[in-house]
Amino acid sequence: MAIGLTHYLVIGGILFTLGLFIVLTRRNAISILMGVELILNSANINYVAFSHFSSGNVEGQIYAIFVIMLAAAEAAIGLAIVLSIFQIFHTIDVEAAETLKE
C-alpha cells in the first residue's frame, strides 16, 4: 500500500481530535497544555504533508519548525502560569481558578 497524502491528513485529524478532546475535557492544567501540543503537532503534520505532496519546496517544513519553536515558548510560558496558579490556589485544577466569576 502506497502511503499518500490522505494517510498523513488522517493522522493529523486524529491527533487534532484527540488534542481537542483533551483540552475540552481535562481539568488538570498540565493535561490541557499537552492537548494543545497535540493540536500544534497535528498542524505540523498537515504543513509538512501538504508541502511534500504539492509544491515540492520546503516552505511547509520551515513553518513546521516555526510552530515547534512557538510550541516550546508556549510550553515555557504555560508552565510558568501553571506554577503561579499552583502557588495561589494550591492545585492545578483549572476549575479552582475561577475567581473572575461574579
Binding site: L24, T25, R27, V94, A97, E98, L100, K101, E102
Partner: peptide, 11 residues
C-alpha cells in the same frame, strides 16, 4: 453570566 472564569466553558 458568560464570564464564568472557567477555562473549559470558554473553550
Amino acid at each position: 453570566k458568560i464570564q464564568t472564569g472557567n477555562i473549559n466553558s470558554y473553550l
